[in-house]
Amino acid sequence: MTDNGYDSTVVVVLEGGPATLPQTMSVQWTSGLSKIKIPHRGGHEHFELIETAVPPPDQPVFRWTTRTKVAE
Rank of each mutant, 00 (worst) to 15 (best):
E48L: 14
T2M: 11
Q59S: 04
K35L: 00
P39W: 03
P55K: 00
T9R: 13
D7T: 11
F47W: 05
D3G: 02
P55M: 01
E15Q: 15
V70H: 10
G32M: 02
V61Q: 12
S26N: 15
G16T: 06
T30L: 05
T52C: 04
T20V: 10
E72V: 14
V61I: 08
V12P: 00
F62A: 03
M25L: 15
V54W: 08
E48K: 15
F62M: 06
S26F: 11
T9K: 13
W64L: 10
F47H: 04
I36L: 13
P60H: 09
Q28G: 11
Y6W: 12
T9C: 12
A71C: 04
P18C: 03
L14M: 10
E45K: 02
V12R: 01
D3K: 02
W64R: 11
H44E: 00
S26R: 15
K37R: 15
V12F: 01
N4F: 00
E51V: 06
M1S: 05
K35S: 03
V13R: 15
K37I: 14
D58Y: 13
P56T: 09
T30V: 08
Q59L: 07
M25P: 09
T24L: 04
V54A: 08
M1L: 07
Y6N: 14
F62L: 03
V61M: 12
G5P: 03
S8P: 07
G43C: 03
A19T: 13
E51T: 05
Y6R: 15
V10E: 14
E72H: 11
V10F: 10
P39L: 04
G42Q: 00
P56Q: 05
Y6F: 12
T20E: 15
H44V: 00
S8N: 14
N4H: 01
L33D: 06
F47V: 07
I50A: 02
E48Y: 11
Y6V: 12
E45T: 02
G16M: 08
K37P: 04
L49G: 10
E72C: 10
G43V: 06
L21F: 03
T30D: 09
G16H: 08
Q28R: 14
E51C: 02
T9A: 14
T9D: 14
P60E: 04
G16L: 15
V12C: 00
K35I: 01
V54R: 12
V54F: 09
Y6I: 10
G43A: 07
M25Y: 12
Y6L: 10
P55R: 00
V27C: 06
A71K: 06
K35G: 01
E45N: 00
P22F: 03
V61C: 14
Q28K: 15
P57L: 06
Q59A: 03
G5M: 05
Q59N: 07
D7A: 13
V11T: 14
E48H: 12
I50M: 05
V11D: 09
D7Y: 11
T20Y: 11
T2S: 15
V27G: 06
L49C: 10
S31H: 02
A19K: 14
N4D: 01
W29G: 02
G32A: 03
T68A: 05
E48S: 13
D58P: 06
T30R: 07
T20R: 13
